[in-house]
Computed example of a mutant assay.
Amino acid sequence: MSGHSKWSSIKHQKAATDAKRGNLFTKLTREIIVAVRKGGPSPDANYALRLAIQRAKDSSMPYDNISRAIDKGAGTADGIQLQEMVLEGYGPGGAAILVQALSDNRNRTVQNVRNVFTRGGGGLGESGSVAWIFENKGVISIKAGDRDADELGLLAIDAGADDVTVEKDYITVYTAPQKLEEVRIALERNDIPIESAEVTMVPKQTLDLDEKAAIQTLKMIDNLEELDEVRSVSTNVNFSDATLNTYATAK
């Protein structure tokens, strides 16, 4: 999962940019609304809502925004029905790309996502075409700072993590989805600062691309994530440090 570890660290950095654009809060609001409508407005009794609220807090979403999203999810005045969607396709060089979305108009979302795939040199696939490449995992990102990375990794394993990878000063902790909250709490009790924690799709195996195709894939992912209805994008590409640096510099 080392390729995904690098991707996790840059996704966290990208989140700050998304927040500046304003669309991150829109995505987080949608997640909270759906969680409330599926499991009720009480975080104590609704695990999905607890995770959604924690993600919002991790992204510095104001409390008033979170509260309004919960109220909106609990009410029916707006009449908006959000549908969870999973769209699958291939990017340049055969990269597998899995898109998770929350939409109030399925046809519009499919067309928007299809357009991004097509413009990016890829194509939207059939249901099941790439989903088998991924598995649902809890993913916790930690910046080691002055702490010993190996020590932090052992603490995570002791707390119930399945796997830990280290990329420079970033540590990525993988858990079973239902163990994410438990492991996070255990790490925080040891004064380990959590940069992000989420349940997401992680590739079982990664794919190496040449730099041109890898950069095209990064651009496609950026364009997909700019769509308001897209909540997350996963890929099986193992992005090299050189490629990530080249792409970041060119933006």
Rank of each mutant, 00 (worst) to 15 (best):
E31A: 12
L155I: 12
L187K: 04
D222F: 00
L207H: 03
K11F: 06
M1Y: 08
G123S: 14
G123H: 10
Y63T: 07
A77W: 13
L28H: 08
G40Q: 02
L28V: 14
A74I: 10
I215F: 05
D64H: 03
G138C: 03
G121P: 06
A48M: 13
T118G: 12
G94K: 11
S60C: 14
V233I: 08
N112A: 13
E151I: 04
T26G: 15
A161L: 06
G121W: 02
N46F: 07
N46A: 12
R21A: 15
L82H: 09
L244F: 04
R50A: 09
L207Y: 04
D208K: 13
D148C: 05
K179S: 14
G3Y: 00
R119C: 08
I185P: 06
V173G: 01
F25S: 14
A19K: 07
A248S: 11
I221A: 03
K212V: 15
L187V: 09
T109C: 13
E135A: 07
T246L: 09
M61H: 07
T26H: 12
L227H: 02
R189G: 15
G120M: 04
W132E: 14
G79E: 07
S2M: 13
A156C: 04
T243L: 06
L209I: 00
G3C: 10
D241K: 14
T76E: 15
I185Q: 11
K143F: 15
N223G: 06
D148P: 05
F25T: 13
I142D: 12
I171L: 11
D148K: 01
Q111T: 11
Q205H: 14
V237P: 00
S67M: 07
T217E: 04
G75K: 12
V173S: 01
S127A: 08
E84M: 13
D228Q: 10
E151N: 05
M220Y: 00
F25C: 13
T235P: 01
V110W: 04
G39H: 11
V233G: 03
A161W: 01
A186I: 10
E151P: 01
A214M: 08
D78A: 10
E211G: 03
G91S: 05
T118C: 15
L187G: 06
Y47H: 12
D163L: 11
R50M: 15
S240D: 14
N223L: 09
